[in-house]
Simulated scan of single mutants.
Amino acid sequence: MISEHVVIPGSELRERFSRSSGPGGQGVNTADSRVELSYDVERSQALPEPLRLRALAHLANRLTDGVLTIAASEHRAQLANREAARARLAALLRTAIAPPPPTRRPTRISKGAQARRLESKRHRSALKQTRRSGHSD
């Protein structure tokens, strides 16, 4: 589940399992605990068209032929890696389909604030000026 409106069915996900490097001792040579989760964003039926296009644009550098692949091998158990990969996929897609932030409206500094700033600069300058001229050895 990506959001309350978007749910990706398991039939659109492909999982591949392989041997993981890292901790596991002797079992690491026999257990296929590494998970590669693939999701075809380009051909997905679960995402509405505008969201799919937004996801394709946002994830363009991570896609290979329109397919997003996530590998998880941080856990020793295959099930934990499957859950981690699915969670990572959901988080990636959630940010990819999120609407862009509103554009910033340019604002002006008020005349009073600008006057205060310039007065502060004048005051500071005068202070330093008196230090310079008042200091004679």
Rank of each mutant, 00 (worst) to 15 (best):
Gly22Phe: 05
Val6Met: 06
Ala85Pro: 05
Lys111Trp: 05
Ser21Lys: 15
Gly25Ser: 02
Gln114Phe: 09
Arg19Glu: 00
Ala55Cys: 04
Glu15Thr: 11
Gly134Trp: 06
Leu118Tyr: 09
Glu4Ala: 11
Asn29Trp: 07
Ala31Phe: 02
Val7Arg: 13
Asp137Ile: 08
Asp65Met: 05
Arg117Gln: 13
Ser133Asn: 10
His135Met: 12
Thr130Gly: 01
Gln129Val: 03
Leu53Asp: 12
Pro100Met: 09
Ser73Asn: 11
Pro50Ile: 03
Ser11Phe: 14
Asp65Lys: 13
Ser11Met: 10
Arg131Lys: 10
Leu56Asn: 07
Val28Gln: 08
Ser18Lys: 01
Arg82Val: 13
Arg105Lys: 15
Pro9Gly: 08
Arg14Tyr: 04
Ala85Leu: 09
Glu49Ala: 14
Asp137Val: 11
Gly10Phe: 06
Pro99Met: 12
Lys121Asp: 10
Glu74Ser: 13
Glu36Val: 12
Ile2Val: 15
Ile70Gly: 06
Leu93Phe: 08
Arg14Pro: 00
Glu36Leu: 09
Pro100Leu: 15
Glu83Asn: 10
Ser21Leu: 03
Arg117Val: 02
Ala55Trp: 02
Thr95Asn: 09
Arg88Gly: 08
Arg122Thr: 13
Arg52Lys: 15
Gly24Lys: 01
Arg132Asn: 09
Leu13Arg: 05
Ala85Ser: 07
Pro100Ala: 15
Ser20Ile: 00
Ala71Val: 15
Val35Met: 07
Val41Lys: 01
Gly24Ser: 03
Leu118Met: 12
Leu89Ala: 01
Ser20Asp: 01
Ser3Ala: 04
Tyr39His: 08
Glu36Cys: 09
Ser3Pro: 00
Ser33Met: 02
Phe17Asp: 01
Pro102Gly: 00
Val7Trp: 10
Ile2Thr: 06
Arg86Trp: 08
Ser11Thr: 15
His75Glu: 10
Thr69Glu: 00
Thr103Ile: 11
Leu56Asp: 07
Ala57Pro: 00
Gly10Trp: 11
Val28Arg: 12
Glu119Val: 06
Val41Ser: 02
Ser20Gly: 12
Leu79Ala: 13
Val28Asp: 00
Gly112Phe: 08
Ser21Gly: 15
Leu89Pro: 00
Leu37Arg: 01
Glu4Cys: 01
Ala98Cys: 06
Arg124Tyr: 12
Ala46Arg: 01
Val6His: 04
Ala90Ile: 11
Arg104Ile: 13
Gln78Ile: 08
Leu93Asp: 06
His135Gln: 12
Arg62Pro: 00
Ser20Phe: 02
Leu51Tyr: 06
Ile2Pro: 00
Arg108Val: 08
Val28Tyr: 00
Thr103Asn: 08
Ser33Trp: 02
Glu74Trp: 03
Pro99Phe: 06
Ala91Met: 05
Arg116Gly: 05
Arg104Gly: 07
Asn81Val: 07
Glu15Gly: 05
Gln45Thr: 14
Arg16Ser: 13
Ile109Lys: 15
Leu37Val: 04
Ala31Gln: 12
Ala60Pro: 03
Arg105Asn: 09
Lys128Leu: 14
Ala60Phe: 05
Ala31Glu: 09
Leu59Val: 03
Asp32Gly: 02
Thr64Val: 14
Arg94Ile: 03
